[in-house]
């Protein structure tokens, strides 16, 4: 494949990765920002979203469109409620101490994985996409001084992938509106900036925490529902999203939502583009080292506000 179309393809694939990553990571960033804890089980909420999406589409029976729509509405809410429950029963009791939260969320990770293994099983199962047309894309070629439009071999995307990118943008806009335009967003931001002060002003910090935790997990689940027609639901699928969104949150500057989204774009796109130039594993090595060096020279993240 020529370089131009190849680059185009890599960028589109990168955009898809970035879209899903931005959703997952903004959930983690929200939790991190408001509650100042690392939720190691975040990836498991993502996994749960995918697995529940499979259940829901199975229950809905024949129509993939209906099943998918149902999953899109129901699953994030279910996962969010579960997360809020975890927050109220466990995290609250350990006082959101950073280290204890790590141990407790590792425990929750084990529990969620094992329960999924016992009920859903070890197989990777696919969910039918509601629509999935292959769209071949044209490319412009310059030869003998004239421009020519042609359809390069292999340059294509599917309508569903485009939908995922679009949906991610809409959801992220919604989240931005929620945080900046609503009272709930105001309360969350107040809690994020100063917990003590928020308490003093009578903000129900405890309830805000539960909502933030549930919302964060719900974002991860939503990302999973969107991706599951492309990647399959599997009980160990939570590891990578956790690692990547963790990286994105830090690179973006702790708890900063816009930062996280920009970082997701950067990581998703670079993942796609670097793979053009190097052998794949070498590309991954460079990509990881790149993240490390960004932080070494910008320790507060690329768009960090100063608070470590």
């Amino acid at each position: 494949m020529d370089f131009g179309p190849y680059l185009m393809l890599a960028i589109m694939e990168g955009a898809l990765t970035a879209a899903v990553l931005a959703l997952t990571a903004s959930g983690l960033a929200l939790v991190f920002g408001v509650m100042r804890v690392v939720n190691v089980a975040h990836g498991e909420f993502f996994m749960l979203g995918a697995v529940l999406a499979w259940w829901v589409t199975q229950l809905a029976g024949g129509s993939p469109v209906l099943g998918f729509l149902l999953a899109l509405c129901v699953v994030p809410v279910l996962v969010g409620m579960l997360a809020a429950f975890v927050d109220m029963t466990i995290l609250k009791r350990i006082n959101y101490d950073p280290e204890r939260t790590i141990v407790a969320t590792i425990g929750i990770l084990y529990i969620l994985q094992q329960v999924t293994l016992m009920t859903y099983g070890p197989e990777a199962r696919p969910v039918a996409p509601p629509f999935n047309a292959r769209i071949a894309l044209p490319w412009i070629d310059m030869s003998d001084g004239t421009l020519r439009l042609y359809w390069p071999w292999g340059l294509s995307i599917t309508s569903y992938k485009l939908f995922v990118i679009g949906a991610a943008c809409v959801v992220l806009l919604g989240l931005w509106a929620l945080m900046t335009k609503t009272k709930l967003g105001l309360l969350m931001r107040a809690t994020e900036q100063d917990r003590e002060m928020a308490l003093a002003f009578g903000i129900p910090v405890q309830r805000i925490y539960a909502i933030a935790f549930g919302l964060g997990a719900g974002m991860a689940a939503l990302a999973a529902v969107l991706i599951v027609p492309i990647q399959q639901a599997h009980y160990l699928m939570g590891g990578d999203p956790l690692l990547l969104s963790f990286i994105v949150v830090i690179i973006g500057g702790l708890g900063s939502l816009p930062g996280a989204i920009l970082a997701a774009l950067l990581i998703g796109l670079s993942d796609g583009i670097i793979s053009i130039f190097f052998s794949p594993t070498l590309a991954k090595i460079f990509a990881t080292l790149f993240v490390a060096f960004v932080l070494v020279f910008r320790p507060k993240g690329l768009w960090g506000t100063g608070k470590p």
Partner: peptide, 22 residues
């Protein structure tokens, strides 16, 4: 890694270890 601290330190060490694994 000591140029960073806190969570950034966590990620930098994590990234170096991932690079090592790969």
């Amino acid at each position: 890694a000591l140029r960073t601290e806190g969570v950034a330190f966590m990620i930098v060490t994590l990234m170096f270890a991932q690079a090592g694994y790969l």
